[in-house]
Nucleic acid binder design. Sequence first.
DNA 1: GTCTATATTATGATAGAC
DNA 2: GTCTATCATAATATAGAC
Lengths: 221, 221
Amino acid sequence: MTADRRARRRQETLEEILDLAEAVMTEEGVNGLSLAEVARRLGVQPPSLYKYFPSLMSVYDALFLRGQHEHLRVVRDAMGGAEPGLAAIQAGLDAGGRWCLENRALAQLLFWRPVPSFEASPEALEPSVEMIALIRNALTEAVAAGELGPGGDSDEAIQLISILTSGTLTQAMANEPQLPWGKGRFSPLFPKLIALLPAAYPPTAPPTRRRARPKALEPTT
Amino acid sequence: MTADRRARRRQETLEEILDLAEAVMTEEGVNGLSLAEVARRLGVQPPSLYKYFPSLMSVYDALFLRGQHEHLRVVRDAMGGAEPGLAAIQAGLDAGGRWCLENRALAQLLFWRPVPSFEASPEALEPSVEMIALIRNALTEAVAAGELGPGGDSDEAIQLISILTSGTLTQAMANEPQLPWGKGRFSPLFPKLIALLPAAYPPTAPPTRRRARPKALEPTT
DNA sequence: GTCTATATTATGATAGAC
DNA sequence: GTCTATCATAATATAGAC
């Protein structure tokens, strides 16, 4: 059916608009996004964009939503490929950090909120609920395995991790705008920061044996 | 002499322009600063502002410079009123955090760099050199007192502290825009984060006795 | 040091022809 | 779903009168 083709083509255009919007934000700042500039790059006149998005804010919201989903997927996939517990958190947030530095404009939109007039829709905030659940689940496993002690899977522990993550990202994005994750003075410190968690929530008993050999921690990297 | 009065009046106007610019940034985002809006609030026509600042970017630079100096002064004063070592870092960065949440627009300009077209002048970056020296000095004292072990006053340790600080601030500013320092889910965790430093750089010997009674740690707060 | 007037350019958004 | 035309508004910045 041609309706399929048309719908697919429309979806492609929608994504292309968002891609171009990301590029504009990267160059002009998140707050510097303008539909006219996106239209210019897409090779159409500004009014044409209103067939795809009803307003500038709706573009921000679509970007926010797409960013949340991509970020969540990257973190979830990396956690799934790692040993449970702290190693999963390490692997997930490491992959998340890499994604953020590869998608700086989106990361700033998600984690800095630099556009006061933009309020993310409730739907766009849902992925962050799952993100928190993922982290808490891994923390609970870490506590069960004796990697962390009491309070290691509390709200406070999650907030602590979010501070470590956003601090690393903020310093990297603000001070080393062109370096990727893993390079420079800040992001290489992230593993060290996560390794401090047991000091914050010290295990009361010696850790139980891990399910697999420690050597096999990162077999696919 | 009337020249004095005139110079003083001019200085007052300069400061008033910067105050109004801060207010605009707070409401419209750092990137949303506009000279026309500042002129409106000052009750003059936009061209009049060009007698005080040659361009929009020069206003950003003056804001950056003023912010750096204020922030440095606040941190330096708080460190001077505390015991040397980790307690000084704790006190200094705590006061610095409070200042940041009371001056969010400036803090974002200083630490997020959300305006890609704005590059701070070398002069405006000087206070951050002294800030680093202050922290390093306190870290060296902490090492000497046995609070921290080897590496406790390294570049890496300073970067670690900057991550903890900017992470706490970023989470507070993005997620709890109206709460002051010390309230909410994030900034109260800051002392806990600083307390993790000895775990990152463990003392090799038991700490030597502190110079004063621990009770007197925060006598003026 | 203030103003008016102006140049130049930009924006978000809508109406309506094709 | 694209366009032209348009509305309404905004911005930075300069020239020049007072």
